[in-house]
Design a protein around this nucleic acid. Sequence first.
DNA 1: GAGCTTTTTTCGAGCAGTAAAAATAATGCT
DNA 2: AGCATTATTTTTACTGCTCGAAAAAAGCTC
Lengths: 410, 410
Amino acid sequence: MTRKVSDSDSVRRENRGLLLAALRSGGPQSRTVLAGLTGLSHASVTAIMQDLLNQRVVEELSTPGPADGRMRGRPATLVGFRRQAAYVVLFELDVNRLRASLVDYAGVLVDRIETAVTPQTFAAASPTAFLLEHLSALRQRNPVAAPLIRRIAISVQGILDRDGSGLKWSPIAHLAGSPFATEIAAEAGVAVAVHKRGRLLAEGTRWLDPNLHDASVATVFIGSTVAMGLSLHGQIMGRSEGGATEFGHMNHIPNGALCRCGMRGCIEAYAADYGVLRTSYSVPETATPAPAVPTQQYDSLIQRAEQGDRAATHGFNLAGRALGFGLSRMLAMFDPSHILLVGPGARALSFMRGEIEAALTASLVCSINGLPVISAHLDEKEPIFRGLLMKTLAAVDDTDIAALPSEVRV
Amino acid sequence: MTRKVSDSDSVRRENRGLLLAALRSGGPQSRTVLAGLTGLSHASVTAIMQDLLNQRVVEELSTPGPADGRMRGRPATLVGFRRQAAYVVLFELDVNRLRASLVDYAGVLVDRIETAVTPQTFAAASPTAFLLEHLSALRQRNPVAAPLIRRIAISVQGILDRDGSGLKWSPIAHLAGSPFATEIAAEAGVAVAVHKRGRLLAEGTRWLDPNLHDASVATVFIGSTVAMGLSLHGQIMGRSEGGATEFGHMNHIPNGALCRCGMRGCIEAYAADYGVLRTSYSVPETATPAPAVPTQQYDSLIQRAEQGDRAATHGFNLAGRALGFGLSRMLAMFDPSHILLVGPGARALSFMRGEIEAALTASLVCSINGLPVISAHLDEKEPIFRGLLMKTLAAVDDTDIAALPSEVRV
DNA sequence: GAGCTTTTTTCGAGCAGTAAAAATAATGCT
DNA sequence: AGCATTATTTTTACTGCTCGAAAAAAGCTC
């Protein structure tokens, strides 16, 4: 029985959340537009806005600019998020880089620190200490924002702890096992959320491409790892909804190629950069995977494929086959209408498409529902950041802001 | 924007639903107990109950029996569903059988008709006509209940139409393509829901075993087909949540054994009765699958395995391997804590367990989260019926009953 | 400044929920 | 029998939220 009793309090929270969400996705709006967008009555919008205004969460923006020719009637006053109402800190933790960003409540980047990460980084300093150091730096450089930081979110790769305190496994050396989320939360005094990179990709692409906003999309990252995020009818599949997708480490061929994770036959072992490289250079598939592939080397491999190099093409064909069967198996459980490839490997879609489609065609679900639309999106960094950002701001909206008690109205 | 505005009406619906759900899962209860169970105040429970009583949805049951020795204070009056408040008709449609049941609002079976189904059945009569015939029979035999039938639910195998009007594909001959749900709804004038058998299994086992009620369980049916239903934290994964699991037709081996669906390498082609039989008798795996396997023959194969027959054991080993890798691939996306095998094949778990566990052990997710608990539940019919029943009654509760307008209180 | 148009606010009604007091119905003791 | 005790159920008084309708506000045009 997870459902909870509903009362006037929950009604207020719900409707405030509705309004905040509309503001979040549509930018500053007039009250009338918001009423139409949310379905709330004008009276309610005014009342809620009055509260939000008093609580200094939103602010009235001066006239919206005269726009098109003559406009009659009372001009609308837009309301939008007050940028200084809250701040969030976002950590994007990667195999070779940490990017710490301070963002205001309107989603505008305020400050950012980037640091290189090496396999030794977390051997020398605990993940908690390393991240807290960056947090302090951001706080010191932005003393006004510092006390207003409401949430911290961390994007990682790997398998999350059940309780969200850290990672059970990660390709980033010495990161797994440390309950850094809990520790940072205790130290910083604010909520800390850990998100899988794959899932953020799904969230991010949803915000980037309006066509995909409410569609069912499987976003597949291909690069130094293989990961997937899923959204169905605009809803991101989270851990609790069953989208704990360790897609890259789904088995492709029993006892197949050796993967970085130590298992054999993972999709990643064929489709990640090191896998394609290994195949292309005819290195035995049981050879220990390269710990890191220089971007250059991977790019030049793609170039060679573009120039018709047989070995390179073959490597990507095998990658496509692994991806194709992985997707076909995924489609036995979910049925997204779109498959979106992102990351460095997305450039090589043309060499993989044939194998992917062949694998999908050989599945019952696709022979009945038809093939999903497969496309590539070359930018990879922005979707992750944007996903992390929107997810975190939405959490602030729903958890911190919507739950504020209402002011007594006179 | 799927969220809807919240108002006092939605509050009432929500809380009425809460109360009905408590009554549904806990049987007749006193108002005080219900208040504790739902978290509602006593006053609200009384008020809502007054409404439900007036609307003749529930009824007060005479004293609950003195029970244990001395009891002091005003005795509680139990309230429970009024059996005659509503009725539902449930169709369980199988490859070789149709079972039509009339059930009252308290979940008590009132009448039942069983009919054999052959591959010719739906060539001769349209699915719509065939089902409507049974509906009429039930109505005529139960004239009192007839006008009170609120919903019809149909359990099927196969791939559902996107809009729920029928099936896109089914192992039942000549069933796919007919929009029987829509047609029956139009003819009978009540809502008709079509459910996948696999998902009902998940729902049913949840109600059967209290331990599993709020756990995360993958229920796998093994018999003439292979199907799966998933529940995560007590929530059944439906089509919209991404649990459209065509697990039986997930690819196991590219270009592998021929499946009844026409594709190759499906899990079913190894793990369904015909698959095991084919392997055990060393029939080439490209041979056309037997259209139906007599229960006897399958049972005797299990018996032979129990007696140590090598060929039979081998057949089940291969089935276990297919299931194991299928489950390992599923686990890359969901992480249920329990795997429950049901159906005729569940008896053979001991011959498959080794291969299943071997396959799971070879996956990253299991090596980190540990193996899920794998067990078998031999009864198969009851979970499906129970799942169909509870799902349908819950739909009546939420859609028809909870939404009733409240009486004006004087 | 009057008239027009559109946006925003105000006001009273209605409804659902809670807390606390009152009513109810049995038991137990004198 | 009469009255205190105990526990359940109902009633009462009050709060908070949304909504519809009407009023007020704000700019533009003439």
